[in-house]
Design a protein around this nucleic acid. Structure first.
Length: 422
DNA sequence: TCTGGGGTCCTAGGACCC
DNA sequence: TCTGGGGTCCTAGGACCC
């Protein structure tokens, strides 16, 4: 059996933990740059607001309805996520962290309903008590069915935060109620095609012949079909390793027009990529830098820069990654025009474990010395805060900084922001 | 004025090998 | 008239997820 634990309206719930007056009030959380809505409370959904709504277009409506608005505070959400996952880790030796707000637990060896139901309820209670975050738990024999069970647990209060699909009768009943478009693995395209084939619910899909599903929806669709029928095809992945790693941002207002400012931004993106790369104990062989103008502006010249560089030997070095990114940007910078770059980013790919790097006979770099320096930097940054030591090209003033006009405090990660109880 | 940021997997088709 | 059979690797693009 698998359990899927899903945090309810995660970003909104994180904000509510530290601002209890927001309970029962409509709340939305915005994307970077306060661009669009990425998370909403139930009350906000009831007002007709949707994920993806563009902030400046719905701003008046938000003000008129008294909706609480937050810029996204990833420092807070990341830390809260970590706390939730730590608690979940105590319930199973095999935890599969699927996203910032979801994780699968391997419950193999557990007993029947009488044992699972209190166990699931206990998971929800423990997370709620330990972090303040409400969660929904779904338990079933496949990951796809567990996802469906968690949706029922979230929707109907009577489940007491834990829904279990453990018999054929319950499976059929659940699938007959479940719209095909909401199934994990069925996106907009597939659901449109399924609807035109007369498939409205998850149950309808399971009644289609295997050969048709395999032909029309390839192996991924076929796996979803089999999982819905109770055959487990997607296993627990305890240590997912990134295959690519990307740090990118949109810039506020007009964007960036000078190379110096863009260089500083790209250097910081590269440093962030490096931080995430080394946290996984990995190295990368390929680096890509890109920058482009706004897709929405038709009145300005457009441009898309992209340069990819192969490292001679896979690297995990801050200096090498940052300097290579900056060099790649300079290389692709155009001098024959004047552009306002609205977004830029750094992508690391061909990622492998740092201790499996293929060395080169002709590599002139002193890797041992380099590793010692990197280790010292990492130690100091861990002790004194990220960015205490950084590359000079990363700059100080962050001229490319994001717009975050509705940011909450870093309640859990900065001593100056800690909540005060009077 | 203003429109997010991060991933994975699969397939088809081209280029190449014997 | 009639153009083999078996592979690998790479890339672009599509579909999906949160």
């Amino acid at each position: 059996m698998f359990a899927l634990v899903d945090c309810n309206n995660f970003y909104v719930s994180c904000e509510r933990v530290f601002a209890p007056d927001l309970r029962n009030r409509p709340v939305v959380v915005l994307s970077n740059n306060d661009g669009c809505i990425v998370a909403l409370s139930q009350e906000a959904k009831a007002l007709g607001l949707k994920r993806g709504d563009v902030f400046f277009q719905v701003r008046r409506q938000l003000e008129a309805s008294g909706v609480a608005v937050f810029s996204s505070n990833y420092t807070l959400y990341g830390d809260m996520s970590h706390r939730v996952m730590m608690l979940l880790g105590e319930f199973t030796p095999r935890l599969d962290i699927y996203s910032i707000d979801e994780a699968f637990l391997d419950l193999s060896g557990m007993g029947g309903y009488e044992e699972l139901k209190p166990y699931g309820e206990n998971i929800a209670r423990t997370v709620r008590r330990g972090t303040g975050i409400p969660v929904s738990v779904g338990i079933a024999g496949t990951k796809t069915l567990a996802k469906i069970a968690s949706k029922f647990a979230k929707k109907y209060k009577a489940y007491n935060a834990c829904c279990i699909i453990d018999t054929e009768q319950k499976r059929e009943k659940a699938l007959r109620l479940f719209p095909i478009a909401d199934v994990w693995g069925i996106g907009r395209r597939h659901s449109a095609r399924l609807l035109s084939a007369g498939v409205k619910t998850a149950w309808d899909f399971t009644q289609k012949p295997a050969a048709w599903v395999r032909r029309e929806f390839h192996v991924t669709g076929f796996r979803t079909w089999a999982e819905l029928r109770g055959e487990s095809c997607i296993s627990i992945d305890e240590l997912p390793q990134n295959k690519t790693l990307c740090t990118s941002r949109s810039f506020p207002a007009e964007g960036i027009e000078t190379l110096a400012v863009l260089e500083e931004a790209v250097a910081n993106f590269a440093a962030e990529c490096h931080r995430r790369l080394t946290r996984q104990g990995a190295a990368c062989q390929t680096l890509t830098v890109f920058a482009h103008t706004s897709y929405y502006r038709t009145d300005q010249p457009r441009d898309f820069l992209q340069t990819t560089v192969q490292f001679p030997v896979a690297t995990a070095s801050l200096a090498e990654i940052v300097s290579t990114a900056v060099r790649a940007l300079r290389q692709s910078w155009r001098t024959d025009g004047h552009f306002f770059y609205k977004k830029a980013g750094v992508i690391l790919s061909d990622i492998c474990p740092a201790d499996e790097v293929q060395l080169s006979l002709f590599d002139p770099t002193n890797r041992r010395k380099q590793r010692a320096i990197e280790k010292a930097i990492a130690t100091i940054n861990a002790r004194c805060g990220q960015g205490s030591i950084r590359m000079a090209v990363q700059g100080q003033d962050k001229r490319w900084k994001l717009k975050t006009e509705h940011l909450s405090r870093r309640y859990t990660t900065n001593i100056n922001d800690i909540i005060r109880v009077k």
